[in-house]
Design a protein around this nucleic acid. Sequence first.
DNA 1: ATAATAACCTGAGGGC
DNA 2: TGCCCTCAGGTTATTA
Length: 270
Amino acid sequence: MPELPEVETSRRGIAPKLVNQQVRDVIIRQPALRWPITPSVTDLRGQTIDSIQRRGKYLLIYAATGCAILHLGMSGHLRIVSSDTPFKKHDHVAIVLASNDSLRFHDPRRFGALLWTTDDPLCHPLLARLGPEPLSRAFNADYLWQQVNHSRRTIKTLIMDGTVVAGVGNIYAAEALFLASIDPRKTAGNIDSDGSRKLVQAIKHVLKQAIKAGGTTLKDFLGSDGKPGYFKQSLQVYGRGGNPCFQCRNTLNEIRLNQRNTVFCSYCQR
DNA sequence: ATAATAACCTGAGGGC
DNA sequence: TGCCCTCAGGTTATTA
């Protein structure tokens, strides 16, 4: 479900309710996520939350003695509710605050994760190898040009590789390639420096616009306030296979690339 | 070393 | 209704 814009939307939604709040309780109802929830995440009890950061699609909840690392997987979302709100099916974790707000981690498919570390979370094995943040200056045309150089993979596969750039998933990879007029099947090594520049620009643009719209709600993504994101209306290709391209009116192609559904316009994207 | 694939789960939707 | 199949916004571990 959530790519970088949805995770950032969640971060912005929960941060005002969590930061500087004391944690009254941590309730783990279902520990069997992508990895077992680290039992010591209950160390948060009694501590004050210092800040909530994002790295790629990971949320980092910092407290004095450690940091909770949270990933929403494919189907996860976070909501802030009053702590007396009944649990729903697949509400796996609750972080209950002194304010009586409760952060609920809901994740039907359980591909998400909640880990606790007392080290620098950025050095955690899951985060240490992540590529640059797509919206940072480190992600620029020169960098991508270096990455595509000599790669035999398709360009879409490459930009979805978190070690190349963090947080670009299936929706925004497709959208960015359309904006950059690049065929997703193109071998990365055949992208020239101009293509790299356009693609970097397109990725930044589409992510920024999606964050502005509160993310993309396809079926079940909701912000922490329970409201959907509105970027779906702006999608140019994702989910539009068989429909006319908004630019040239030709029928959009739909193929499978690396076991992922991929939509593109074979006229506009070369 | 690089790249494809199998795996972790539930739920929705389509075909029969 | 229900059974079986396929597919879904992600990422690691395993295999080739």
